[in-house]
Amino acid sequence: MNLYAVRAIYHFEMARAWRTLMQSIVSPVLSTSLYFVVFGAAIGTRITEIDGVGYGAFIVPGLIMLSLLTQSISNASFGIYFPRFTGTIYELLSAPVSPPEIVLGYVGAAATKSVILGLIILATAGLFVPLRIEHPVWMLAFLVLTAFTFSLLGFIIGIWADGFEKLQVIPLLVITPLTFLGGTFYSVNMLPPFWQAISMFNPVVYLVSGFRWSFYEIADVDVALSVAATLGFLLLCLASVWWIFRTGYRLKA
């Protein structure tokens, strides 16, 4: 195992985050605060509580998931797309590193950033509403697994993309809508039966539900299903990355 290489990649990617500290931290803190003002204060006066949890507190897990998913993808996709774009990828390809080491470096760094981000949002949320975390270990497990999985997805997107605009397509057109429709700001049980059934096809429902369970022990779907969905998606992404490296897809001519 070339640990020096993993470390070099990881540090390189983390250094990028420090350079863009404003973007990395200030903007999510700001947007979370805005969500609380708009959704919490405005809607919260109409919906006072869901399943016995105050509305403001209810949306916290979903808000964290929303940022976690979109930031993991954009961080990881940018991290691997940029060297492809500038050509510096030649160095990575000519280095004595194995695919798992490359993934560990890039995806590990992106996931780290997302987890830190999630914790910052959590802390920010704590300023607005009283928080309760029933299962902190599960909460962290969901946080880390989801961050890693969606960073993997971002890594795949960064290899597939052949232009900067494509980096945005999936987060913007797929992930954000799915998250908004995935019970972030409401409980799926509040929907008419037809839309409840449709929602069960939305993978984000399972992620948000499991995560929310770790806070308040309330869930739209069985927690076991949430865990299975998270792990299943992780395996799917791992398999795709394995295939990419095995075929040299878009990395080697």
Partner: peptide, 24 residues
């Protein structure tokens, strides 16, 4: 390489040290 493909925002020291690490 033939093309001048370098990082942009990193320092000379950082990018050179990065290469050493990458090569194990």
């Amino acid at each position: 390489p033939q093309e001048l493909t370098t990082d942009a925002f990193e320092s000379v020291w950082a990018t050179t040290s990065f290469s050493r690490g990458l090569f194990g």
